[in-house]
Structures are given as C-alpha cells and as structure tokens.
Design a protein around this nucleic acid. Sequence first.
DNA 1: TTGTAGGCGTTATCAA
DNA 2: TTGATAACGCCTACAA
Lengths: 341, 341
Amino acid sequence: MKGRQTTIKDIAKKLNISVSTVSRALRGLPDVNDETRRAVEDLAKKLDYHPNAVATSLVKSKTYTVGISIPNFVIHFYSSAIVGIQDVLAPAGYNIMVCQSNESYDHEVKNVQTLVNSRVDGLIVSQSLGTQDLRHFQSVVEKGIPLVSFNRTLDGLPASKVEVEDYEGAFQAVEYLIHTGCRRIAHIAGPQNLRISQSRLRGYRDAMAKHQLHIYEGYIVYGDFSIESGKASMSQLLELSPMPDAVFVVSDHPAFGVLSGLKERRINIPEEISVIGFTDEPFCSLIEPSLTTVAQPTYEVGRAAAELFLKWIGDKDHFQPEMRVLKTELKVRNSTRRLWM
Amino acid sequence: MKGRQTTIKDIAKKLNISVSTVSRALRGLPDVNDETRRAVEDLAKKLDYHPNAVATSLVKSKTYTVGISIPNFVIHFYSSAIVGIQDVLAPAGYNIMVCQSNESYDHEVKNVQTLVNSRVDGLIVSQSLGTQDLRHFQSVVEKGIPLVSFNRTLDGLPASKVEVEDYEGAFQAVEYLIHTGCRRIAHIAGPQNLRISQSRLRGYRDAMAKHQLHIYEGYIVYGDFSIESGKASMSQLLELSPMPDAVFVVSDHPAFGVLSGLKERRINIPEEISVIGFTDEPFCSLIEPSLTTVAQPTYEVGRAAAELFLKWIGDKDHFQPEMRVLKTELKVRNSTRRLWM
DNA sequence: TTGTAGGCGTTATCAA
DNA sequence: TTGATAACGCCTACAA
C-alpha cells in the first residue's frame, strides 16, 4: 500500500456524499446528521484517514510550526533550551523545525530563508557568531512573522527577547572573587558584537570599580566560546607579570580550556588562580576541580521564548515585542576559594 | 507590512502576464522570452518574492522535510546524531522536523502521528524506552513512507537500520577487562526490549565464556540508561560477596552513576574495581577518573541514517530496507587498569 | 442537513 | 513563447 494517503474525497465517494459534509463531520461541526457523522467517522478510522496538514496550512495560511535557528545542537545550553521550547509549544499544537547555523552567517541566512519559505508561523533564534548584518532578521519582522531571540539577542530589532541577568551575574561573580581575597582579576571576554559579551564585560568592570581595584593593562583578553580559545587566552594572561590571581571567563567552555591550561602548567586552582565560568553546563560539576560558574536557567530560557511567541501569535495585531530577563545564580564550587568566615 | 507575502499572482498582475509564465520564468524553465524573464525576476526581487513551499508541497506531494523522533535532545549521542543527519540532509534540500519522545510511548505515538500528518517525506527515529508496541511504526511503513531507525532499532520491521557493533564492542570491552587481570566481572545491563541491550549482554556473556570465566549469580543486574539507575545497580552489586572486581556497564550515564557510587564509598578505581561504559559521551574524558568506554561514532550514525533515507527516497519503488553497522572503538582511560606489558 | 463553487499558491497539461 | 485550465487536499461561504 504505497503512495497516496486517503483523503476526504475518498471517503465522500465511498459514502456517496459531498466532501464538505465529510469535512464538517470530521471536524465535529454542528449541522451534521448523527448517522452521517458516525458513518464518516467509522470509515475514516477504517481507512486510517488523517487530514493532510499541508492542505490545511495552505487554506488557513497557518502551518502550526515554528522555526528555530541556533548555533549548535550539541551544546547543552541550546539543546536544553529546545526542550523548553518544545515543552511549551507541543501542548499548544505547534511543531518545531530546527536548523543549526554552526556559527556561520551564511548558514544562518539560508536557514532563516528556508524557514520563511516553509511559512513557519514564527521564528525563535539565537544568532550565530559570524552574524553582524541583521537584515535577514529585519526582513522576517517586516513580513509580519513573530520573531523571538534568546541568549544572543537581536539588538535594535523589534523582536521579542529572552535574556538572563548577564550584567548582574558577572558583577556578582567578580565581587565574589574579590570577597575571597583575589585582587588581580582578569577577564576573558567574548565577541563584542554580542550583547551578552558586552554585559558580562561591563559587570566585570563595574565590580572592579566598585571595589577600587585597578584593571591592569592586558587583563582583559578577547576570545570566543570555544575551549581552545579559552586555553589560548589563558596562555596570554600567564605571560603577564604580575600574573592574575583570578579569571572570570565569559562562558563555561573557554573556562574549561582555562582549567586545562592551568593544570598542564601545574598551577594550583584555586590557591594560585581562581576561575569562574558562565552558564553551568553539566560538565562543570563533573570536572576536576569542579567549576564555579554563573548558572543560567537554560530550560526556562527556552520556555520563556516559546511563551513570548505564543503571546505574540495570540494577538498578532497589537502585540509589542517584549523582553524577558531571567535570573542567574552563582554556583560556588572548587575552582574558587571559599569565603572568609 | 504585515500579513500576506507576495505570490506569483501579484507578479503576474503587475506585469500583465499569466501566472504560468511567471512560474516558468521563476523556475528557469526554457521557452520564456528573455525580456519577460528579466522583468519577472526583477519584480520578484523587488517584491521580495519567495515561493510558498506549502503550496508546492501540496501539488508535488513532497514536503522536502523529514521527521525525527528521538528520546532526548540533551543527550550528546542524539544531538550529535542530529547534526550528522542535518549535515547530510540540508545539502540535499531537506529540512528536519524534530520531536522528543522523552522516553514515553504515548509521546512517541503522537510525534509520529503529527509528523505523518505533516506529510514528511520520511522518518528517522530512535524509539523510546517505553515502546513495546511497534504498530505506529508499522503503519508508517504501510503508508509507503521511508523509515529509518538508528541506535534503538526497530526489530522486525521493514525499516532501514543504523547500528553499531554492539556485540563486538561489548565483547572487546569485557575481554580487555579480562586481559588486565579482572576475573569477577559484572554487567549492568539495559532494558531487554532493546536490541542494543541484548547485544551488549551477549557480548559480555560470550567474552566470559570464551575465557572460561563463570558468571556468578547476581552479577548481571538490569537497569535503564540513567545515572541514578547505574548508581542503584552498583549498590546492588556491592552487597554481593565476593564483590566484583570489574563492571561493564551498558551505557555511559549509568557508568557515571557507578563511578560516583564507588567514590562515595571510597572504593578505589581501578585498583579495586574497574569500570567500562558505552558510547563515549564527552564527559567521559572530563570526569575523575576518566571513564574507559566503547566509543560509538555518533555523528556518523546520524549521517548514515540520513544517507539511507536519501537512498530510499531516491528509488522509492525498488528500495529494500537496508542495515548499516558502524564500528566501535575501545577508548582506554583511567577507570580500568593498564594491560600487562 | 447537505451540496455546489470558489479559493489557498503552485505546478502541469494543453491549446493557442 | 504564452495563456487557460485543471489539479493538489482542504475549508468556507452560500445556496438548496
């Protein structure tokens, strides 16, 4: 039994009634004779009829699917966010179409384009590292398609946004380092085209300033979100004199690179250098030493993004893009010293 | 500019030509006057026209999307497989629609149903733990929809399958334990409705038999793929006397549970007990002690699954379901003793 | 309560 | 080289 699936036409023909009657019966509309309805339902079940969503989408101009574009599936932050998204969207009847940009601008543009061509009802995205030009997102908005960005948020676009308290989290982390006695605190920063990187850098700066700590030349190093980058940045920092006694890293993966760089050189953590990351990837509590980090509620970020989409789609004509900011939490582990009691 | 996107009708009207001409021009078909074509293309660009994939799908009965149902996004094995799938499918023009079953049979059935209703061109799946009844997959096949399963493979169905050398990998792992001097080797097995669990158990049994090692009563414990389950199984094993001197665990997550259970009781790894897992999740090399494991080529598994789909769809009438078996590799780390030299 | 007709945005088959 | 016209599977007036 290959090929065509059964349609309302098939049912109509066999029952010698019109397709509209079948359609009505199947959708539980009133004004259908009970007998007819039963007959239709029975036959539908027997023929394993299921409405063709493609056809319905076409007439309703609504696909009940939302497109997702993220940099990377295998990073826990993103996969966890997707779970959050799906947990909110599925009960509302939406499917998700997922694309990975692999941190490439070109891929991202292509992804967004195919998703739009598929007439998704909305887009939930976290931009790639390579993205500077936001016109492809701009055009999504202009087409009237609800657009929600999370984590790496679309600056200056009328899109809804889900962020976490990057500034506050960073501030708190650095202040914690100071409270534990660190003074020469360095920062391995992220790409500055992303607001998250900027905010975390500002948090670092302000915390240092608040405690009248000077930021030595070269104590701020710029990298990306990879392990290797973290390792390289740490090497750079280790050439400085005096050596920093703490590093606040923009994200967990580079922080992991920092740890492994330090371990290779047999520098004691946290006695000689404290390290703090950002996000709380699962590996943070598994590695040795376990990594102190600013935890983000990744699953909740996904949920919030999906909720903002639903809110938007629920009132397409009046909805104003909205921003949701979730809390972070400092998780103290063994890569930092304990507080003085 | 909200609402409707531009259609070929809009273009046709503005240019005072018929939609069929526009359609032909846009698709680069021959038999179109150069001037007309240029005019159409220019206007299309100007109006930011992009074909409505929903409409095309309807007339072509082809959506160029394949549905994916997996137990869990956040397990690296699956997200990595998805990346492999997407890397093969995207260049071929296919999108993916992803669903997570969360190890629930009901979810899985629903997922498969919506995917089929969306008229996906094929399905790539890894069944949930709770799935015993395979009728929902059976019906997919009967509808003539290409179905390929990976990892947790659909036994007895005419679906393509991607597996790894579960038996051989397990055999090799256990034999390695024996070579390092272990004799009282236990096995924490997986759910026996899954072939992977069965194969790995057989591998264990046969390796023991080959070396004339007796399998003590109670040395085989059954669990699932969770950390907690691994920990619980280990507790069970530790009550036995004599205590095993090695454990081969069906998967990395429970193996991780085993390690943490052992560490809590201050049992030395690998001196007192060796541990081997299966899959090589990224955390294996990060934890302390690092986990010896049978590595699976997760990304390649995804690629292979996607390739099998393409092969099937490429010759829908004659294709016979096919099975691909990928190699595993024992990664020796610090949770096992070294080989005698 | 049911049927007819038109449309959703394309493609495909004829004629012209 | 172009234009009608009829699909694709379903929904929605409107008419019967």
